[in-house]
């Protein structure tokens, strides 16, 4: 574009108006206000985001335990309390309680199957039950009497399991909705064997092997949990 210098000169000859001072000050004040607003806006916004994030995390943390605590007790309550001596419920009870939480196989979490005495290994049993089981182990009573005592001991153990401190681990396990550890499970199977409940023990062992196919049983434990031919 070829400019005509005369036009440019004429234009430059026009008065060079400038904005009034008040206008300058108003605009500059607005620019400073905007910067100052920004100075507090971002820290406040960042703080709000952090507070919100912490609140959400706290809420999630609060929600999770509730879900775990509330659900399992319902399952425990669903389990019909076994009649004291009747044979039938004994076979059904483990199925009713089933996998989610195996309270009947939840003894002392510290259980060490290799070193503990039979009495100490009694599942979720109070002192009375242990005495019964000691008797069973010690005295070579006739088969009928032994079976009866066995049933009574089992029944007593079940009732006490609901009250005795020894059952706290089982209940804790049930409340937490967690399956028993492999060791606890095996200990339960050992206990079933000791009580002569071999069919249940077989079922549990089969279930255990299905659940933990790679779990290697020690020779001692194997001897305890497998049925002796």
């Amino acid at each position: 574009m070829s400019d005509d210098p005369k036009i440019s000169q004429r234009y430059r000859g026009l008065p060079r108006e400038e904005p009034p001072r008040a206008l300058d000050e108003a605009i500059l004040a607005a620019s400073r206000r905007a910067v100052n607003r920004r100075r507090w806006y971002y820290p406040v916004a960042a703080a709000a985001v952090i507070v919100l994030a912490v609140a959400v995390v706290a809420h999630v943390d609060r929600e999770q335990p509730d879900g775990e605590v509330v659900a399992p007790p319902a399952k425990v309550l669903e389990t019909p309390p076994p009649p004291p001596v009747v044979e039938q419920p004994r076979a059904e009870a483990p199925q009713a309680a089933q996998k989610p939480a195996r309270p009947q196989f939840a003894p002392d979490p510290q259980a060490d199957s290799g070193r503990r005495s039979d009495a100490a290994r009694a599942p979720a049993a109070g002192p009375a039950a242990r005495e019964e089981q000691n008797d069973v182990a010690a005295s070579p009573a006739p088969a009928a009497a032994e079976a009866r005592r066995d049933r009574e001991a089992d029944s007593l153990a079940r009732m006490q399991a609901q009250r005795a401190p020894a059952s706290q681990a089982a209940r804790a396990s049930a409340l937490a909705g967690a399956a028993p550890s492999p060791e606890q499970w095996l200990q339960g199977i050992v206990d079933l064997r000791r009580q002569g409940r071999h069919e249940e023990a077989d079922r549990e062992l089969a279930e255990f092997r299905k659940r933990y196919p790679d779990y290697r049983l020690s020779g001692e434990m194997k001897a305890k949990v497998e049925r002796r031919q």
Partner: peptide, 26 residues
């Protein structure tokens, strides 16, 4: 610089352009 919070940068910018913009609009 002004975008990043330097108020002085705006003052320089304003001083540079105020007259021409004012006359343009006027």
């Amino acid at each position: 610089a002004y975008r990043d919070g330097d108020a002085g940068a705006f003052e320089k910018l304003y001083a540079r352009h105020r007259g021409a913009l004012y006359r343009f609009v006027l």
